[in-house]
Amino acid sequence: MRIYGVTGWKNSGKTGLVERLVSEISGRGFTVSTIKHAHHATEIDHPGRDSYRHREAGAREVLVASPVRWALMHELRDQPEPPIEELLQKLSPVDLILVEGYKREAHPKVEAHRSETGRGLLATTNETIKAIASDSAVEADGLPVFDLDDTASIADFILGEVGL
């Protein structure tokens, strides 16, 4: 599977960039899936729902299905968070998987950067970052720099990097 990441500090524009890239790349006829890493206990279910009640009762996995989608929730129940390689195996084959977050993992990444965060570039200490997408001029030590809103050029770069 071809994997490319979007990383950056909080509020740097990662989610918006991933959203635009999914639209741009899938609009070109490629199939795209995403993995989003969260540092907090993300809740995709809500108290009172049947599926929530199943999980609260102790179910390890709950699969919810409808005529338009299905979702599988897996409770770790004090087990460690699985590595990204294990999670990738759970996805159906596609042309490209875009990964949001996972700063320290080995896959190549574009760094989303907004000057308003007041944070420096991750790329200065992270060799897996292959380009910068920024809302301002940045010194990137020879890495390609794209305007954060130039989705087509960033998509071109990523597709070229993964050979699509």
Results as ranks from 00 to 15, higher is better:
Met1Tyr: 00
Ile3His: 00
Gly8Glu: 01
Gly8Cys: 06
Gly13His: 03
Gly13Met: 06
Gly13Asp: 07
Gly16Trp: 04
Gly16Cys: 13
Val18Gln: 05
Val18Met: 11
Arg20Pro: 01
Leu21Glu: 00
Leu21Cys: 03
Arg28Gln: 06
Phe30Arg: 02
Val32Pro: 00
Ser33His: 08
Ile35Gly: 00
Ala38His: 15
Ala41Val: 12
Ile44Trp: 09
Asp45Pro: 08
Asp45Leu: 02
His46Thr: 14
Pro47His: 10
Tyr52His: 15
Arg53Val: 04
His54Leu: 15
His54Tyr: 15
Arg55Asp: 10
Arg55Ile: 06
Arg55Trp: 06
Arg55Lys: 14
Ala59Arg: 01
Arg60Val: 15
Glu61Pro: 05
Val62Tyr: 07
Leu63Arg: 12
Leu63Phe: 13
Val64Arg: 01
Pro67Gly: 11
Val68Tyr: 11
Val68Cys: 04
Arg69Ile: 01
Trp70Tyr: 14
Ala71Leu: 13
Leu72Cys: 06
Met73Glu: 09
Leu76Lys: 14
Gln79Ala: 15
Pro80Val: 08
Glu81Val: 15
Pro83Ala: 10
Pro83Ser: 09
Pro83Asp: 12
Glu85Cys: 06
Leu88Trp: 05
Leu88Tyr: 01
Leu88Ala: 03
Lys90Arg: 15
Leu91Gly: 04
Ser92Trp: 01
Asp95His: 11
Asp95Phe: 00
Asp95Leu: 04
Ile97Gly: 01
Glu100Phe: 12
Lys103Ile: 09
Ala106Asn: 12
Val110Phe: 03
Glu111Ile: 02
Glu111Gln: 03
His113Met: 07
Ser115Met: 12
Glu116Met: 12
Thr117Gly: 05
Thr117His: 07
Gly120Val: 07
Thr125Phe: 06
Thr128Phe: 07
Thr128His: 13
Ala131Leu: 08
Ile132Arg: 06
Asp135Trp: 09
Asp141Ser: 15
Gly142Phe: 01
Val145Thr: 08
Asp149Ser: 15
Asp156Arg: 11
Phe157Lys: 08
Ile158Ser: 03
Ile158Pro: 04
Gly160Val: 11
Glu161Asn: 10
Val162Phe: 12
Val162Gly: 07
